[in-house]
């Protein structure tokens, strides 16, 4: 009798705790690869290295960061980059998706070709785009450096100094190198965004679009009042992805401009790389990493909030 009770209890325990045991491997992996590095980064951000080992320095790493002239500049560059990169990719991705959604001839081939940039590593894309505009032998240099096309002296993208900012120290209009970096980054991200939007467009019932046309909606109105509201969640996902990759990606900046000319393409992620892996100031790099994480959260939160408002208004 007692044995049956124990067995029953054991069975129930096993049944109740089964989800936990099934989740445990995933939890352990997440703890090891996400929670541990995150906590270690927090710990590191309050430390400084000296010959005797790590030393607790309180908020000194954060104070030093805020005291760096480049820190403020990098925030400006990052903002310009993110706006340009996410905006351009979304707009062009949307337009291409619209065209592909019309079921053109060879659209399968177009999609295949479109996917090529996505499978190339960003560091390689950076090198390729750099080679196009190297002052001496770049494929596009002959055109860009033609004074007739770009007066008065032609345009050398990798060395041209940024124009004077219109407002205070805000780096706008951006340096030619920043514009080029945005173009290269958008080129690489375009396939993913386009396919994402195209997939969403293909879920829109055709009756809906047709009936709106019968009701007299012109193409612009169809896009504005039918397509965009229906694919809005997908656009938000695309925006998330672009924001995070733009905020945290370093490969393209590293291989295309190296943060230059001067500091005109030095974005926060490159600054983090530079402090961490060039200057080997791991404490200060950890402090910057935490700040970047905070900005990521703010951006995601802001985007979510905005899109909720948008969804409600529709």
């Amino acid at each position: 009798m007692q044995q049956t009770g124990i067995r029953r209890r054991a069975k129930r325990w096993l049944r109740d705790s089964l989800p936990f045991w099934l989740l445990l491997p995933t939890i352990l992996i997440l703890l090891a690869v996400q929670v541990y590095p995150a906590l270690y980064t927090v710990w590191l951000s309050f430390q400084e290295r000296n010959p005797a080992g790590w030393e607790f320095v309180g908020g000194a790493n954060f104070r030093r960061l805020f005291g760096m002239g480049l820190f403020g500049e990098s925030i400006g560059h990052t903002t310009v980059f993110l706006l340009g990169y996410a905006g351009l990719t979304l707009v062009i991705g949307f337009v291409i998706a619209l065209l592909l959604n019309r079921k053109l001839r060879f659209s399968g081939l177009y999609i295949t070709l479109l996917f090529i940039p996505w499978v190339i590593a960003d560091i390689i894309v950076g090198i390729a785009f750099r080679l196009l505009v190297v002052p001496d032998y770049g494929l596009l240099s002959g055109i860009l450096q033609n004074p007739a096309l770009f007066p008065p002296n032609g345009l050398s993208i990798l060395t041209a100094v940024p124009p004077r900012p219109w407002i205070g120290d805000i780096p706008f209009p951006p340096a030619p190198a920043m514009v080029y970096l945005i173009l290269a980054s958008a080129w690489r991200a375009l396939p993913f965004v386009t396919l994402l939007i195209l997939a969403a467009m293909q879920t829109i019932p055709s009756e809906l679009v047709e009936s709106s046309r019968i009701d007299g909606a012109n193409p612009r109105q169809v896009i504005r009042f039918i397509i965009i509201p229906l694919i809005l969640p997908t656009l938000v996902v695309a925006l998330f992805s672009l924001t995070l990759s733009g905020m945290n990606g370093v490969g393209m900046v590293f291989s295309l401009t190296g943060g230059g000319p001067g500091s005109s393409t030095e974005v926060l992620s490159y600054m983090l790389y530079s402090i961490g892996w060039r200057q080997l100031e791991f404490g200060r790099a950890a402090a910057l990493a935490l700040l970047i994480a905070a900005v990521n959260w703010l951006l995601i939160g802001g985007t979510l909030r905005l899109t909720r408002v948008e969804e409600r208004s529709h």
Binding site: V134, S156, L158, G258, P261
Partner: peptide, 9 residues
């Protein structure tokens, strides 16, 4: 100008 292009160019 190439003196400012980086990459040892």
């Amino acid at each position: 100008e190439i003196a400012f292009a980086g990459g040892f160019q």
